[in-house]
Structure formats: C-alpha cells, structure tokens
Amino acid sequence: MLRNKEIQILLFVMCSISLAAMIAAFFISIAAFILISITSILLIGSCFIFTRWRYHEIEKLSAYLRQITSGDYSLDIRDNHEGELSILKSDIYKVTLKLSEQSSLLKKDKVQLTDAISDISHQLKTPLTSMMVMSDLLSNADLPKKKRVEFTRNIRIQLERLEWLVSSLLKLSKIDAGTVQFKKDNIMVHQLIHAAIQSVLIPIDIKEQNISIDGEEAVTLLGDFNWTVEAIINILKNCVEHTQEGGTISISFTKNALFTEVIISDNGQGIPRNDLPYIFKRFYKGKNASEDSVGIGLAMAYSIIKSQNGDISVMSEKGKGTQFRIKFYTQVI
C-alpha cells in the first residue's frame, strides 16, 4: 500500500499539517502541544488503518475478478452493508451472473451448431454419394441409352433435393439469427390459403385427393404474407404425403377477439404418439416418414409461426388422421 504514490502524498500532507500544528501548539503551551500531538497521531493512525482496510477489500475484488476471467463464476461476494464498496460488489456480482449466463448460452450454441453440422452432413451425404456412383456409371461408354437416361434423371432429382435442402437451411439460419424482418401486414386468410395450395396442387391431383376450405372471406390475420405462405405450404406437404390416395385435406379458419385460427387436418395414417413431441424438431423423422423426407419442413413452419408471435399445435390419432392448429394472436402483450 505504501508503494502507491497517492498514499505517500496523503501521508506527507497529513504529517506536514500535524507537524505545523504541533509547533504552533508548543509556543502556546505544553498542554496544547500534547493534545495536538495525540490528536494528530490518532487521526493519522485512523486514516492509515481505514485506507489499509479499503485497499484490502479492493485487493479481494481484484482476486475475484481474476477468478472470473479464468472461468470460475461460482463465487458470491454480495453483502448487506451500505456504502460504495458494497454497491460495487453487488454490481460485479450482477455482471458475473450475466457472464455466466452468456457462457452457458455459448456452450449450448456450440453443441447445437455441432449437432446441426452433423445432421446437415448426414442429409447431404446420401444424395452426393448417389450422384457420384451414377456419374461413374455414366462415364462408361458401353452403358445402354435407357440406363443413361434413367441415371441422368435420378441425378437431376437429387440435385433438386439438394437445392431445396440448402434453400431451406438458409431460410432457417436467417430466422435463427434474427435477421429476417417479418412484416406486420393485415392479410386476408383466404388469399393466404389459396396461395399456399398452388404449390401442392400437382401432388394432390396425382393422388386424387380432395381438399376443402371453410372460412369467411373477411377473416384476416397480422403477419408476413410470403413467410406465412411458406409455413402453410410445409404443413400442407406433410398432410399430402401422409394421406392415402383419394383422401381428404380440410382447411378452416376463424377469428375472434384474441386470435385468428387456421386448422389444417387430414384423414391420413396419423402420427404415432411417441413421435408427436418431436415432429417440430429439426431433422427429426418419424416412423411413418418417407425415405425422401428430410425432417425440416415442419421445423421451418414452427420457426416461422413462432417468430411472428403465433402458436402451432398438433393432434393426431394413428389411422384416423392429423390436425394442425395455428393461432395468430391479434395483440401480443
């Protein structure tokens, strides 16, 4: 402590003042000299002890901060006393809690990133391997024309699948990063539904499925038209895929004072009970999923709806069909 220049200056000033007072008191009387001397010694001693204590507390705070920088967030230095040191301790503890939370979130993000990269690698590996095998076969000059056409068509299918997968992953990454600016337009729900249906008309026609729409044209919701269409399309694709030929897909929508609700249901094979809690999880494939399924469509629909302060739930019974209920709240408090 005595090595600090400010303490040396303080002691010099206090000793100088005390010495001057003692000399002046000596010329007044011996009693005054003794009184001033004792008082000066006590004041200088008290100041020295108090300053030493403060430096000791500051040294403990410095040691605490060094432990924080080394990654130890377990210490608690809060106290219930008044004063600027106690306030400083409380503020440091609050910062420590925030750093601890951020450290936990970073670790969690690293684990999620590792899992996501692993899942993406797995999804890309299959079509890439398939295309490599077929490209090697195509290099054979003796390959029959019929096989050459078949392999070329298969490569195109795999490329289209890769394009869709990459596009979907980019969209999801934008939503996760919070870089998507969702609009808050007043959308006519019947226009939203008809726009989404256009993307699934061909598979519906191929499987000769029926689709019914029920709802008043005046029903509206607050959201982003294009992104919400994307979410509805992915839900409809799931319904079409898991509904048998000649099956029915029903869409209804209503509005009340609290929210606008869109219900999409089918009479298909349904979702097993064990799969229900995980169907919105990225890359999850249920027991009834097709071989070409990636497990990203419903995850994207979930992210889009949730990002617009909406809610989505699913009810299903094996062999009787599935129902998706989407709610867009009129006002979020």
Rank of each mutant, 00 (worst) to 15 (best):
M1K: 11
L2A: 14
N4T: 12
I7H: 06
Q8N: 06
M14W: 05
C15G: 10
M22W: 08
M22Y: 07
I23T: 11
A24W: 11
S29H: 11
I30R: 12
I30Y: 13
I34H: 03
G45E: 12
I49R: 09
I49T: 12
W53L: 09
H56I: 11
K60Y: 11
L65S: 04
R66Y: 08
S70L: 15
S70V: 13
Y73R: 05
D79Q: 06
D79K: 05
L85Q: 05
S86K: 02
S86D: 03
I87P: 00
D91R: 15
T96A: 06
T96Y: 07
L97I: 15
L106H: 14
D109H: 11
V111D: 04
V111E: 09
V111C: 03
Q112I: 15
A116H: 10
A116W: 09
D119G: 04
T126N: 08
L128F: 12
L128P: 01
T129D: 07
M131T: 02
M132R: 07
L137G: 02
L137Q: 08
S139A: 08
A141P: 11
K146N: 04
K147N: 07
R148C: 02
F151C: 02
T152F: 03
R156S: 10
I157Q: 03
L162K: 01
E163R: 05
L172N: 08
S173W: 04
K174A: 15
A177K: 08
A177L: 14
A177Q: 08
T179Q: 03
F182K: 01
F182C: 04
K184N: 14
I187L: 07
H190P: 00
H194G: 00
H194P: 00
A196C: 03
A196W: 01
I197L: 12
V200S: 02
P203W: 05
K207E: 09
G215C: 04
E216M: 07
V219T: 07
V219E: 01
T220W: 01
F225C: 02
N226L: 10
T228Y: 01
V229T: 07
A231G: 03
I232P: 00
I233Q: 06
N234E: 14
N234L: 05
N234C: 05
I235K: 01
C239W: 00
V240R: 01
Q244G: 10
Q244E: 11
S250D: 06
S252V: 02
F253W: 08
A257E: 15
L258D: 10
I263A: 00
I264E: 00
S265E: 07
G268R: 01
G268I: 06
G270C: 04
I271L: 02
P272T: 12
N274F: 10
F280M: 05
K281P: 03
Y284Q: 05
K285T: 06
S290D: 10
E291M: 13
D292W: 14
I305S: 04
K306I: 15
Q308W: 04
S313F: 09
M315Y: 13
E317S: 15
K318I: 14
K318L: 15
G319L: 15
K320L: 15
R325T: 14
I326H: 05
Y329N: 05
T330C: 10
T330K: 13
T330M: 11
V332P: 00
